[in-house]
Amino acid sequence: MQAFTTLTGLVAPLDRVNVDTDQIIPKQFLKTIKRTGLREGLFYDWRKRKDGSQDPDFFLNQPRYKHASILLTRDNFGCGSSREHAPWALLDQGFRSVIAPSFADIFYNNCFQNGILPVVLKADEVQALFKGASKEGCQLTVDLAAQTVTAPDGTKYRFDIDPFRKDCLYRGLDAIGLSLQHALAIAAYEKRRLSDAPWLFTDLAR
């Protein structure tokens, strides 16, 4: 996984609440068996007008946001389906950080698995960032070590993050590798449970 330290980049505003993963990447793009190439599916239905042509008003169709790497949005972003295709598609488009007042649980987790930093700020702070983001070329700096987002005027917004998650993302650690370091503890756990609750271990034979 790609480590996340500091990111300075263009911000793209998506002013909607409850953006669900069906919207982030519709089902027809879930038939893939790969993690890459999902950019064309990102916000697919919203990018087009009813007649199928590209909607020039949709934010990601505007040249000014083409190279945006920070997505700014509203409450409950990423709700709905657990599809990891959602962060894969965001990553494929170039987003490395998403800022919102709240995220759905599974999406939030999925971001960390893919080197994307989801940042939770207070609603009024997000509102202030939205104001600034209307200016063309607005850039933010997201600093994971300091746990801050810096606006163009120098205002710093602090965010919380679990220390363990922070460390894994900052160093780009392989989560499975980390867990495998506890292989002995896992085996000991299984041994104990097997004697206490053997019905949990009636494994399926193929």
Binding site: S82, E84, N109, Q113, N114
Partner: peptide, 11 residues
């Protein structure tokens, strides 16, 4: 998510 599916399979 899918990364976690892999995590559970492996560990």
């Amino acid at each position: 998510g899918t990364s976690e599916v892999e995590h559970v399979l492996a560990t």
